[in-house]
Computed example of a mutant assay.
Amino acid sequence: MDDAPVDIVDRHRTTVFEIDRDGCDRCGPHVEAFVFVEMPDGKPLSYCHHCGTRFWVELNRQAAHVYDLRHMRTP
C-alpha cells in the first residue's frame, strides 16, 4: 500500500522533502542555495539561483529529483 501523503485540496499525491538550507556546492557556503537536487545514486546537491538557472536543463535531464525554490529568493 502506498502511504504517500495526499493533498487535501485536490487529492493528488504530494512529495514531502526536507531541505537543509546550505550554500551552493559550486560557489561555496557563503552563497545561499535555492535549487536542491537528488541524483540517481542518492547524492544531494545544492545550487544558488545563478548556478541553478545556468545548469537547469542538465540537472533536469540527469537528476532523480529537482526541487526549485528560486521563487523564494529575495532580491
Rank of each mutant, 00 (worst) to 15 (best):
Y47T: 00
V16L: 14
H30C: 01
D7F: 10
P5H: 08
R26L: 11
E32H: 09
H49S: 09
E18V: 07
G23L: 06
H71A: 13
D25S: 04
E32D: 11
I8H: 13
G42C: 02
A64N: 12
M72I: 02
I8N: 13
H50E: 14
P75E: 15
E18Q: 12
G52I: 01
V31H: 09
A63I: 00
Q62A: 05
R61D: 10
D22P: 01
F36Q: 11
M39S: 03
D22R: 15
D25G: 15
P75R: 11
G28N: 08
C27W: 02
L45Q: 14
R73G: 00
E32Y: 01
P40G: 02
M1A: 08
P5K: 06
H50C: 02
E58I: 05
E18M: 06
T53L: 11
D10H: 13
V57G: 05
S46F: 03
M1T: 05
D3K: 14
E58P: 02
D25Y: 04
I8T: 10
D25K: 04
L69D: 03
H65C: 06
A4C: 05
D10N: 14
I8G: 07
P29I: 00
V31R: 11
P5L: 07
D68Q: 10
F17P: 00
G52W: 00
E38H: 03
R70M: 11
Y67D: 04
L59M: 14
H49W: 10
E58R: 11
D22C: 09
E58V: 08
M39K: 07
Q62L: 09
R54M: 12
R21P: 05
R61Y: 11
D41R: 09
C48D: 13
C24M: 05
H49C: 05
R26S: 10
A63V: 00
E38D: 10
D68G: 05
F36A: 03
V35E: 01
E18L: 09
R11W: 06
T53F: 03
E38R: 13
D41P: 05
V6E: 14
H65M: 08
I19R: 12
Y67W: 13
T15F: 14
G52C: 02
G28M: 07
I19D: 09
H71W: 08
P5Y: 07
T74Q: 14
D7Q: 08
D22S: 14
H65G: 02
V16K: 15
E18T: 10
V31D: 10
Y47E: 04
G23Q: 08
D20H: 09
W56N: 14
V57I: 07
Y67K: 13
V35I: 06
C51Y: 01
C27D: 12
H71Y: 09
Y67G: 02
L69S: 04
E18Y: 06
A63H: 01
T74I: 11
A64L: 10
P29K: 12
V16Q: 15
H12N: 12
C24K: 03
A64M: 06
R54W: 04
V16N: 13
A4D: 11
P29F: 03
R73W: 02
T53Y: 03
G23R: 07
P29Q: 11
V35R: 01
E58A: 10
V31G: 06
D22N: 13
V37K: 03
H50G: 01
D7G: 05
